[in-house]
Simulated scan of single mutants.
Amino acid sequence: MSDYVVDESTIFETPLVELDLDIEADADVYAKVEWFNLYDAPHGGGSVKSRIAKGMLDGAEERGDLEPGVTVIEPTSGNTGSEIARLAAVRGYDVEIVMPDNAAGGKVEAVRDAGAEIHFVDANRGYDAVIERCEAIIAADPDAYFRPNQYENPDNPGTHERTTAREIYEATDGEVTHFVAGVGTGGTITGTGRGLTDLTDGAAEIVGFEPDEPLHAIDGLKYLKTGDHYHPDTYDESVLDRTAYVTTADAYDQARALRERYLDDAVPIADPGQHDEETIREHLRVDDQFVVGTSAGGGAAAVVGLDEAGELDDGDTVVFMLCDRGDKYADIPLWEEYL
């Protein structure tokens, strides 16, 4: 374990940056840089999941659902696991994380660094097998475990509705016209979508995106297009105005395009959130490269797809999520040649 000390005050109020995606419409495109939640944590900082980890643990403790001596357990593809492990451990709980054995190395190391026990599941069995393994562990000793359950816990979308939506609305001076986010648990798109719909009186268009096929390599996202896959209770499609489908190749291409675009140019900071510019500049890049995670590339691809379909107009204000930083993926094809 590293000597990193979790500081929960760094969660929320993340920076908003302006990005050039080379689209036809004269629209402003912004992105929330979510690794600034717990930005100085080892193995890539925090992620968008830092928000819900805090929200779910806070809620459980306030309701008395989580008590001292209980082990916190959660199935995850990586980011939720590391963030729950970090926050639960600093609060004094033992943690066990169930994850597929092909999870990105940076995510695995982040979980290990937090001191959590990991149960690996053969990735070839699909993600539903990860959830089933977690349920089996709990069933063997129900009183010993507390599962935050990111797939059913209303504190997941509720946290985004209270925080992410407000941050985006205020940082864009209320001018956001499109919000784009990927679907994993559905918490980000559902909660932020609800919040922005309320704040803009329905003016903001809410766009969710999924991988275009079941076998994909866009970490954290779920293929839900057909009904034979686990559907999270935290995902409410009625909030969405449209759903886009993104290929792994397009997600990776857009992530690499961002790296190339900002190799020599600074990434413009539209709103610093709670951070000073020096901190943002220090943690925005890795090895002086602007590298983002796979789902962030997917978000950029979804925005480009909207533009290509003629869905964006001059003067629009589009916001999507940079869910995590690219150094969590240094061991996969996306960034293994660069980091």
Rank of each mutant, 00 (worst) to 15 (best):
G195D: 08
L196R: 07
L196V: 04
L196Y: 04
T197W: 00
T197R: 15
D198Q: 13
L199S: 10
L199I: 05
L199G: 11
L199R: 13
D201I: 14
G202I: 12
G202V: 03
G202Y: 11
A203Y: 06
A203S: 14
A204K: 06
E205C: 05
E205P: 08
E205H: 15
E205Y: 07
E205Q: 15
I206A: 07
I206S: 10
V207D: 02
V207L: 03
G208C: 02
G208D: 03
G208I: 01
G208W: 01
F209H: 05
F209M: 01
E210N: 04
E210V: 00
E210M: 14
P211M: 06
P211A: 02
E213L: 13
E213Y: 09
L215C: 06
H216D: 13
A217E: 13
I218Y: 05
D219E: 15
G220W: 00
L221M: 13
K222R: 15
Y223I: 09
Y223A: 09
L224D: 07
L224W: 08
L224K: 07
L224H: 09
K225D: 10
K225Q: 14
T226E: 13
G227E: 12
G227L: 09
H229I: 08
H229W: 10
P232N: 07
P232G: 01
P232I: 04
T234W: 01
T234A: 11
Y235F: 14
D236L: 05
E237L: 05
V239A: 03
L240S: 03
L240K: 01
D241P: 00
D241I: 07
R242Y: 00
R242I: 08
R242H: 07
R242A: 14
T243W: 04
T243F: 00
A244I: 04
A244Q: 09
Y245C: 01
Y245F: 13
V246G: 04
V246T: 05
T247P: 04
T247L: 06
T247C: 07
T248D: 09
T248S: 09
T248E: 02
T248C: 09
A249W: 00
A249F: 02
D250G: 00
D250N: 11
D250H: 03
D250F: 01
A251E: 03
Y252M: 06
Y252P: 03
Y252V: 06
D253A: 15
D253C: 01
Q254I: 05
Q254A: 07
Q254R: 15
A255I: 05
A255D: 11
R256P: 11
R256A: 10
R256E: 11
L258T: 03
R259M: 14
R259N: 10
R259K: 12
E260D: 15
E260C: 05
E260S: 12
